[in-house]
């Protein structure tokens, strides 16, 4: 143990208690660190814009995305159609704005499901131990052996989404990615809970006669959630990319549903002649994925004092 480390740590501790009498949780301290990071603000602004787009696309455009002006198909960006028009004569800007909904929905729903499922199973495995733990470990091993995209393609192919309503297709995509996405989060939660379990405050609660449910709820989950939040934020971006890939391959969302993946797929035909058709949906997709990954990074840095 070096004292230099002790000094630096002590300085942080004193800083934490600088304002006497004020209650400050670890979360509040992390927020203080987060507030100072430009990366965090950039990602937050981007995410806010995309989420607004998903909820109220009409805030961003008055053009009907389904209004095909065939005469102007493949038009380059101009004052009338900022991003130009695609092969069907749709306004690309408006299609990009309306496409955000599918991506954000898939990202948020998949993350919710994987966090709930993976978090619960991981916690259970770590807390129960014994054969439950062994079983969960083997099951996650099996899922790890299946590549995410391959598995999702198989699932989508088996459920035949063609022609089904918008939300059903979205849910199918969400299910496909969730089934393959939860095991990594379960693993993460399991190891995180196992680090929390031997802490004396868990033992103290047991000695007081607290019920297992109370121990999990009050002591284990709040202290074990950190890594799960960080990784699932980063994963959110990855899920959006996966959705786009499925749609691009023609087995996720399908026209007439508007989605970035579908737009990219449609634009491939004009890769050489009309690259703007490809560029704008791809740019938005990349920005969204990047924004979530940046947010995850920023949160991790805030929770991890090493990089502070």
């Amino acid at each position: 143990m070096t004292e230099s480390a002790t000094v630096v740590q002590a300085v942080e501790a004193t800083n934490a208690a600088g304002d006497v009498g004020e209650a400050r949780s670890l979360g509040a301290d992390a927020w203080r660190a987060l507030r100072k990071k430009p990366l965090f603000w950039v990602s937050l602004v981007l995410i806010t814009i995309f989420v607004l787009m998903a909820i109220w696309p009409s805030l961003f455009t008055n053009t009907d995305p389904d209004n095909a002006v065939l005469r102007q198909a493949r038009e380059r960006p101009n004052a009338n159609a900022w991003f130009g028009r695609d092969i069907q004569g749709y306004d690309i800007y408006s299609r990009v704005v309306y496409g955000a909904r599918a991506s954000i929905l898939v990202g948020v729903l998949t993350t919710t499901f994987t966090v709930l499922l993976g978090g619960a199973i991981g916690t259970l495995a770590a807390y129960a131990g014994g054969w439950v733990d062994a079983l969960v470990s083997r099951v996650t091993d099996i899922f790890f052996a299946i590549p995410l995209l391959l598995g999702a393609i198989l699932f989508m192919a088996a459920t035949q989404p063609r022609g089904k309503p918008y939300f059903v297709i979205i849910l199918l995509v969400v299910t496909a990615i969730s089934i393959l996405g939860w095991p990594s989060l379960a693993r993460l939660m399991r190891s995180s809970v196992m680090q929390v379990l031997p802490n004396d405050y868990v033992q103290a609660a047991r000695a007081l006669g607290a019920s297992p449910w109370r121990i999990i709820r009050k002591h284990i989950i709040p202290n074990a959630m950190g890594p799960l939040i960080v990784v699932s934020t980063i994963n959110l971006g990855a899920y959006i990319a996966a959705e786009a890939t499925l749609s691009f391959l023609g087995i996720g969302l399908q026209p007439p549903v508007i989605s970035w993946g579908v737009s990219i797929s449609d634009a491939i035909v004009g890769l050489r002649t009309t690259p703007h058709m490809l560029a704008f949906p791809s740019l938005f997709l990349s920005l969204t994925v990047l924004a979530f990954i940046m947010l995850g990074d920023a949160i991790r840095d805030a929770f991890d004092p090493k990089t502070r």
């Binding site: 004292e3 230099s4 000094v7 630096v8 002590a10 300085v11 942080e12 004193t14 800083n15 502070r308």
Partner: peptide
Amino acid sequence: EFHTDDGIAKA
């Protein structure tokens, strides 16, 4: 001295 974000700690 240790230079930290919160100031100079005089060790």
